[in-house]
Design a protein around this nucleic acid. Structure first.
Lengths: 142, 142
DNA sequence: GTGTTTGCAAAGAATTTGCAACGAA
DNA sequence: TTCGTTGCAAATTCTTTGCAAACAC
């Protein structure tokens, strides 16, 4: 559930608060699974059977603009969204297909030279391989 | 043009060499633009007006399997391909929309702890912002 | 000759759009 | 009341598939 203060804050950001939007926000809140639009649709439809993909995409677009959600720069056929807008990195597991948050700190040293000649708005690091959940199930690291 | 040695090498990798494949390979060779399937299709169609998207996608898939091309882990609606399979990083410019190779070396320190519990097959770093070509055109870094 | 690849057209998957009815403020 | 949002269906965009004919080896 969202506190009235949180809702008021969103309103002040210029977001109209509809029940559908709240349901989407509540599904995203603390969600670590980097859901696709379809994941969100399927979940929210339980409570709002009439909700449409259009609304899901609209809402996600609105939330993105307000900086409440970010869209991941990850390949594949589906867009993925992350309610965690703090800088952090991701691990894409080739075995289970999940995208996981990396908790460990990873130092990325951007050369001063590159910093000077660009504006860097986002740093997106993706490690691809076999994740910590799947590796134990497989035989060996060999 | 591809040297007979190079072609022979590809054949030994198990790739059947067709004129269409050669044309795609020649377009990719040294290409720094990270083209989409459509970019490739449009270019190759000049020489092979009858080529189809199916062939382009087929070929890219075959080249990927052989490690001659890699598909980028970058969001957006289209797949993008890179003939440079050496480790390197990318810059996605919000102004011009291009994806550029970063020449500068960027040190990424993966904690030993993370290395130990995973298998990392690929490290994909994407910087998002205003690139070195566009920045001078805009007013200031402010 | 054998088995792959090509090219077409159609299917599929994901996202976006147009628009009338609805609802938040 | 006003203007943005919803939900439906249709449209778009990108990628994949099925299959007969063509081709590489």
């Amino acid at each position: 559930m969202f506190s009235p203060e949180k809702i008021e804050k969103m309103r002040r950001m210029g977001l109209k608060i509809t029940p559908q939007r709240l349901a989407i926000l509540e599904y995203l809140e603390g969600n670590l699974s980097h859901p696709t639009a379809e994941d969100i649709y399927r979940h929210v439809r339980k409570r709002f059977p009439s909700i449409s993909f259009a609304t899901v995409y609209n809402t996600l677009e609105a939330l993105k603009e307000k900086g409440l959600v970010r869209e991941l720069y990850i390949g594949g056929t589906k867009k993925r969204f992350d309610p965690n807008t703090q800088p952090h990195h991701h691990f894409f597991c080739l075995s289970c297909g999940n995208i996981l948050d990396i908790r460990e700190e990873i130092r990325i040293k951007i050369p001063q030279k590159l910093r000077e000649k660009t504006i860097i708005k986002e740093i997106s690091l993706l490690l691809v391989g076999i994740c910590w959940n799947c590796l134990p199930k497989n035989l060996t690291k060999s």
